[in-house]
Computed example of a mutant assay.
Amino acid sequence: MLNKFVMAMVCLRVLSGTIEIIAAFIMFRLNQVDKALLVNSALALVGPIILITTTAIGLVGMADKLSFSKLAWIFLGVSCLFIGILKK
């Protein structure tokens, strides 16, 4: 039997992939750079939301196995990722 946390993470990743593929078809159908860029910009919101949600689900699933110091390191690592991605 699959772990419910793993199943939730898998479902979110499948949803994310499906959204990406649908967006590619929409860009292809629109066939205009400005509209394709708009669709691509919307995807820039979806990616981080899926990342945060999937990571949160994974951490909740592992919370009983992780010490406070390990959780702090994970939080610091995720924070560094976002600083690196969002900082201009």
Rank of each mutant, 00 (worst) to 15 (best):
M62E: 09
S67Q: 07
L81K: 03
A24P: 01
V6Y: 14
S69C: 02
S41T: 04
V46L: 04
D64H: 08
A23C: 11
I50M: 07
S69E: 09
L2G: 11
G58K: 08
K70A: 14
L45H: 06
L2C: 06
D34S: 14
K87W: 14
W73A: 07
K65C: 09
V39R: 00
I26T: 01
A42T: 13
K70D: 11
L43K: 03
P48H: 12
G61K: 05
T18N: 02
V6F: 11
K4A: 07
V33C: 00
M1N: 13
L45Q: 05
F28K: 01
K35R: 12
L2V: 15
G47P: 06
V6A: 02
L37P: 01
M27I: 00
A42K: 05
L37W: 05
L43M: 15
L86R: 09
M9S: 07
F28P: 00
V39F: 00
A56T: 06
I83V: 15
E20A: 09
L2S: 12
S16I: 01
L66C: 07
D34C: 01
M9D: 02
V10T: 13
S79W: 03
S16L: 06
F75N: 06
V6D: 10
I26G: 02
V60I: 14
G77P: 04
G58Y: 01
L38E: 05
F82Q: 03
T54P: 02
I57A: 01
W73M: 05
S16R: 06
I21E: 09
G47L: 13
A72T: 09
C11L: 15
E20S: 09
E20P: 03
V46N: 05
A44D: 11
A8E: 13
L71P: 03
L71Q: 15
L37R: 06
S79Q: 03
T55A: 14
V10I: 15
G47Q: 15
F82V: 10
M62Y: 09
N31I: 02
L37Q: 03
R29L: 10
A8S: 04
A42E: 05
T55W: 10
G58S: 08
L81V: 15
K4N: 04
Q32T: 07
A72F: 11
M1V: 12
K4H: 13
K70M: 08
L81M: 15
F68V: 13
K88Y: 09
S67D: 12
V46G: 04
L43H: 01
F5K: 08
K4S: 08
S79T: 15
I22G: 00
G47Y: 12
I50Y: 04
N31R: 06
L38W: 11
Q32F: 00
T54H: 08
L81W: 06
S69T: 05
A42F: 14
F75S: 15
F28R: 00
D64A: 13
K87F: 13
S79L: 14
G77F: 10
V14H: 02
T54N: 14
L86V: 10
I74K: 04
T18H: 01
F5N: 15
P48W: 02
L51N: 11
N40M: 12
G84Q: 09
A24V: 01
L37C: 06
S79Y: 05
A42D: 05
I50H: 02
M7T: 11
I50C: 06
I74S: 02
F25V: 02
L12V: 08
G17T: 11
N3F: 07
L37M: 15
T18C: 12
P48R: 04
S41V: 00
